[in-house]
């Protein structure tokens, strides 16, 4: 008995010193960051740019791994199920809050340990330059006068931009047809080609075509005006009370020791503040919106409730 308790004590002590040593020494090997979206896409490029800076502060290589599929479900699931030793971090995106209401995944944001929010991009209603309307109101009036004519492209059924367009239509009480495409880019292309009437995607995704004079933005669904297009009024300014954003942030699986989390957060915060990353974000017209872990958690909670409510009222949630 005595021997046994001694043994237990010894192992506990050993384990204790061992883990303390492990904590102090973190990181001892390269760290993996899971990106739930394809290599070369917007999320991936952002994460790689940020991780490249974070490497300098973490002192070890950070490898970005793209675990894609299932509209982001696979990557998010992989982050959630990873070993909570701090060697696997992940980027979580808006879809984490839109997949559960559709009954497609068995987890919610509560199964993650959020570290920080990186950016949030508002939806923007964009039409062709030669369209006969130049305000959100004008667009909606046109839609009312010509029922069945207005088609709004989005990036996938049930996607953030589908919900945004649905919400805007619901708030103004007009009937529009939602046309899902295979990503935001094809939807924008179809708009430029005149195959649809409008898209409700982010400013970054239409910037090039707007600057080239092919498209015009009628309004952004955010609290304040866009930095690149300060002339474009928000929906609220035009009397349509709609705000809708997509967002990206970092999270770890539940159970990562606090000191390790602090090290990761610290490295990524420094990377976020670096001149290189800020320059990158400006070039890629990303709307940076940092939030620390506590604020991000509050935000996720509220966002989840909002998204679920909207999806229910639009008939996109699982019945």
């Amino acid at each position: 008995m005595k021997m046994k308790s001694l043994f237990v004590g010894m192992t506990a002590l050993l384990a204790g010193t061992f883990s303390a040593a492990a904590l102090a020494a973190y990181p001892e090997k390269p760290v993996t960051v899971i990106c739930p979206w394809t290599a070369g896409g917007g999320t991936d490029v952002l994460l790689r740019a940020l991780s490249k800076e974070a490497e300098k502060h973490l002192g070890k290589t950070i490898n970005v791994v793209n675990q894609t599929g299932g509209a982001g479900a696979i990557g998010h699931n992989a982050i959630r199920a990873a070993r909570p030793d701090g060697y696997t971090i992940g980027m979580i995106t808006f879809e984490l809050n839109s997949l559960p209401p559709q009954g497609l995944v068995p987890f919610t944001w509560k199964d993650f340990d959020p570290l920080m929010r990186i950016n949030s991009d508002p939806a923007a209603l964009t039409v062709r330059k030669d369209a006969p309307y130049s305000t959100v109101r004008g667009f909606m009036d046109h839609a009312k006068a010509n029922p069945g004519e207005i088609t709004i492209g989005n990036s996938a059924p049930g996607s953030v931009w589908h919900i945004a367009a649905g919400l805007a239509a619901e708030k103004t009480g007009v009937q529009v047809k939602h046309v899902p495409f295979d990503g935001a880019q094809p939807a924008v292309t179809a708009l430029v080609g005149g195959h649809i009437k409008a898209v409700a995607v982010s400013v970054a995704e239409v910037r090039g075509q707007v600057q080239a004079g092919n498209l015009k933005i009628l309004g952004v669904m955010s609290g304040e005006r866009d930095k690149i297009f300060p002339d474009v009024p928000t929906f609220k300014e035009q009397g349509v009370d709609v705000e809708f954003y997509t967002w990206r942030g970092l999270a770890v699986p539940k159970g990562v020791p606090a000191p390790i989390k602090a090290k990761i957060s610290d490295a990524y915060k420094k990377a976020f503040d670096s001149k290189e990353f800020q320059e990158f974000a400006a070039k890629a017209s990303l709307n940076l919106a940092y939030q620390n872990a506590a604020d991000f958690t509050k935000f996720l909670d509220q966002n989840y409730k909002d998204v679920e409510a909207v999806m229910k009222s639009l008939g996109l949630a699982k019945k």
Partner: peptide, 12 residues
């Protein structure tokens, strides 16, 4: 994406 990171916006 690579063009945009270079500060070049392909198109007209």
């Amino acid at each position: 994406g690579a063009f945009i990171i270079q500060g070049l916006q392909p198109g007209p």
